[in-house]
Design a protein around this nucleic acid. Structure first.
Lengths: 156, 156
DNA sequence: GCACCAATGTTGGCGCGGCCAATATACCTC
DNA sequence: GAGGTATATTGGCCGCGCCAACATTGGTGC
C-alpha cells in the first residue's frame, strides 16, 4: 500500500531516524501534558545529579547550545523549578540550582519517560532491549567528543 | 568531564535521539554538498522505484506531509530532477515523474548516503549491524500504521 | 598597570523536519 | 444537482540544533 521505498526501508539510517521521530513524538506528547519539553528534562536531570552549576556546564553535559540554555533555564525559573543567581565567585557565571518543586517535577517526568519508553520497546524482550541498548551505547560512544574514529584531527 | 546525566545516558530513548541527530548531521552534510536535502532523496527514491505517481502517494510512501511535498517537488522540478504535470485522468492530481538527471542525482545521493552510513556504523561488525537493523526494523514495524500494539482504537 | 585573549551569558537569526488549518478545485456518489 | 471526498496549495507553528555577534568578566603576559 504505502510501503516505503526499498532504498529507505533497508537502511539503518532511515530506521533510526523514523524511530527517533516516533519515540520523540511519544515523549514530547507526555512532556507536553505535564507542561514540559525535552530541554527541561535534560537540564533538570543534570541539576539533580550534579548540583548547582553554570549554564555553560549545563549545556555541555546535556548537549544543549548555550543560547538555548538561556531560554530553557528562564522557563524553568518561571515555573519555579530552578533558580538563577549570579555566581559571586565569578560574576560571568550564573549559578543555576534545582528547587524542591523542580525535583518533584523531575520525578513526575521520570514516570512519563518510563511509560513512553516501555510503550516504545514493547515488541522487544528484555534480552533484546539490552542488546539494543548495548549497540546504541557503543555507537554513541564512538560518535562522541573524544572518539576519533574518522576525525582525529590532531594538528590544529 | 561533560558526561551526560545518568537519567539520560542509560535510556534507549536518549541514545536513539542522540544517534539520530549524529547520523542526520552526517547525511544532511553530505546531501547539502550535493545541493540536496532529506526530502529530495526520499521523493526521488519513491519515484525511481514506483514510477510516476501523485504527490499524495509520494507523501504517504515517504512519510512526508502533503504540504511539504509541494515544496520539495517544486525544488526537484526547479533543478530538472523531476517533472510535475497535471494528470489527464484525474485533474486533481499532479503526475510527478523522475527525469534522467533526477535518476543520476539519485545515484549520486546513494553514494553519499552509503558513505555516511558506513562512517556511522564503523564501530559495529557486520553481524552486529545485522542485529541492529533487525531490532530497529521490528521496532519500526510495530510502530507503523496498522500495528495496533498499544493503540488499536477500534471504536471511533 | 595595561593590553590582550578566553570564558560566559544573551540576543537574534537560520534550517530542517514534522505537523496542522484553511482553501480551491475536481471527482464521485446518491 | 447536492453533498461529501480526494488532491494540491498556501501559510503558519513548534522543537531541536546550530551559528554569529555582542557585552561583560576573568585571567595572562607584557
Amino acid at each position: 500500500m504505502d510501503n516505503a521505498p526499498d532504498r529507505l526501508a533497508g537502511r539503518p539510517t532511515w530506521l533510526l531516524g523514523q524511530l527517533a521521530g516516533r519515540v520523540r513524538h511519544l515523549v514530547t506528547e507526555g512532556f507536553a501534558a505535564a507542561g514540559a519539553r525535552g530541554y527541561h528534562y535534560r537540564l533538570l536531570a543534570a541539576l539533580a545529579q550534579f548540583g548547582p552549576q553554570s549554564q555553560a556546564q549545563l549545556g555541555a553535559r546535556c548537549r544543549v547550545d548555550p543560547s538555548d540554555v538561556v531560554a530553557a533555564v528562564g522557563e524553568l525559573a518561571d515555573h519555579g523549578y530552578a533558580t538563577r543567581t549570579p555566581d559571586p565567585a565569578n560574576r560571568r557565571r550564573n549559578r543555576v540550582a534545582i528547587t524542591e518543586a523542580g525535583a518533584a517535577h523531575l520525578r513526575l517526568l521520570d514516570g512519563v519517560l518510563d511509560t513512553a519508553q516501555d510503550a516504545f520497546l514493547a515488541p522487544l524482550t528484555p534480552d533484546e532491549r539490552r542488546q539494543l541498548t548495548d549497540l546504541l551505547t557503543r555507537l554513541l560512544a564512538h560518535h562522541s567528543p573524544g572518539s576519533p574514529g574518522t576525525a582525529p584531527e590532531p594538528p590544529r
